[in-house]
Design a protein around this nucleic acid. Structure first.
Lengths: 283, 283
DNA sequence: ATTAAATGTATCAAAACTGAATTCGTTTTG
DNA sequence: CAAAACGAATTCAGTTTTGATACATTTAAT
């Protein structure tokens, strides 16, 4: 995996780079395959630096020249996908920068792929649905609970009635009974599917409420359980899935909601802030 | 107040800074009060740059001069400058693809910048500390609660004794009393600082426990409150901060922990998985 | 094999950066 | 009040960085 080697090397000496070189560094961190795929001229153009700078950059990185660097990048099987080794005992504590660079590259890819695949009209529809809702139900079981909590924490800052399921130790049906057709359900369904979630979504639809669900890409098995389904890429390099993309999508969603609500949301934010200040929390 | 403004401004133009200026930027991000407390000469000495550079730095930041900047910092007023973006009513529903692309770009930058600035040895030290801990305390108040919950959800999959603060409605001191020198505290300190968190960290250090904290870049008002401090870039485009980078860092940290624990962690993961399957949850 | 096109590399002058020394203004002290 | 002391701004010269251009090398086509 040659691209990792490059990212690793870049992260290592990042602090010593000059400004134009940093542009290059960022370009390669965002597009790890760029070195293998494009010419020096093309790379220079994309990173908005001169060819000379690109040439110098690889010398500073320790390569004899740009060409050798590119050859090395191409010779290494840079297909970068290198299968899931979730359970292939990682004996090597060899640690360090390589892992970090890999992880970064992976999460950047997760973000990019996710937003590439999400259609903006669907997102807007989702946001609109959340805005219009009288009550908003945020639902997340198991590993989705933190994500649900996070979404609610954002939304409650701009909208008054956000309910969370599950809540404390309370029984779900009792809580969920108050759902109405003017409500919207935001369902977080990343990773392991839970039966309860399925039941809740069915109940919600039956009750005539709107439903928005956030899933990972693997979950396409049960389509159309929600009015709007947003798929996130959650590919992780080893034991755990990555939640960067879902978090980013949720953040965007909340921002879009706040934006649509407009001044009321701003006022509410300000009010909350003033309460915090009054209570002596640091701003 | 003002220090936050300064840090914000610095982060805004961080990419365009030269190397010596970056030394200054780092100094101010780590010591936000430095501007108010020290003379330009002293600051220059501490940041290891020339006085001229310091003078120029504040001009580049948009202040008329160093002196003005210092006066503003000391008065704490400084509302004259660019108002906080958070409240600058974004009336335009530009709604199109642009917002999405901006958001994506911003979060990708957050990720990259975060991993650029985090030292891998610090991360490894943090992971090691988490691995060695007899009990692990994950702490997150307010907006950090979902993040803490998320961290715990990962860690509990590979390690048996992970405690969370705050928990249910239980009183913190009663819970926290069982901390010992062989424990480690993972403190999530993104965004608004809470007094309780500070107290907890102090108590933890007094008790001889190890401490790892995850903060945003602007927050290092009290440096060295933890043994290891990991700074994340959380810059958001409008109302809300972005948590993509912190989530990514936490995920990496947990992965590193799992890796170091090794086979035991794998076994535990498998066992948990088998229980899930047995209970009929979909995989 | 030869040539033309494309692409990487080296050179050099312009621009930007930096710190030491100097100048200017303010405050303190005798 | 003078002058000394201090600190901030400016100037200036040396250094580094940068991109345009010229040059060399590879590649492709005939």
């Amino acid at each position: 995996m040659e691209t990792a080697r490059l990212s690793e090397r870049i992260l290592e000496i990042f602090d010593d780079l000059t400004r134009a070189e940093r542009l290059l560094a960022d370009h390669f961190l965002e597009n790890p395959d760029s070195l293998a795929l494009h010419t020096a001229e093309e790379i220079s153009r994309r990173a908005a630096v001169s060819k000379a700078t690109t040439a110098r950059f690889f010398k500073r990185l320790g390569f004899p020249s740009f060409k050798t660097a590119q050859r090395m990048a191409r010779s290494g099987d840079a297909s970068s996908d290198s299968g899931k080794r979730v359970f292939s005992a990682p004996v090597q504590h060899r640690s360090g920068r390589g892992d970090l660079a890999d992880h970064l590259a992976s999460d950047v890819q997760n973000l990019i792929r996710t937003f590439e695949s999400i259609r903006s009209d669907e997102l807007n529809a989702a946001a609109l649905s959340l805005v219009r809702a009288e009550k908003l139900w945020v639902i997340g079981f198991g590993d989705n609970y933190p994500l649900a909590h996070f979404a609610r924490a954002q939304l409650i800052k701009v909208k008054p009635d956000i309910r969370m399921i599950p809540l404390g130790g309370f029984s779900v049906p009792e809580e969920f009974a108050s759902i109405t057709p003017s409500d919207t359900v935001l369902a977080l369904c990343i990773g392991r599917r839970s039966k309860t979630m399925r039941s809740i979504l069915q109940t919600a639809r039956l009750a005539g409420a709107h439903t928005v669900s956030l899933t990972d890409q693997a979950s396409s098995g049960n389509p159309e359980l929600a009015d709007v389904t947003l798929r996130c890429r959650t590919h992780g390099l080893s034991y755990f899935d990555s939640l960067s993309a879902p978090v980013s999508v949720v953040t965007y969603l909340c921002m879009a909601v706040a934006k649509r609500i407009g001044q009321t949301a701003v006022d509410r934010l300000r009010y909350i802030d003033s309460i915090h200040t009054e209570w002596g929390d640091a701003g």
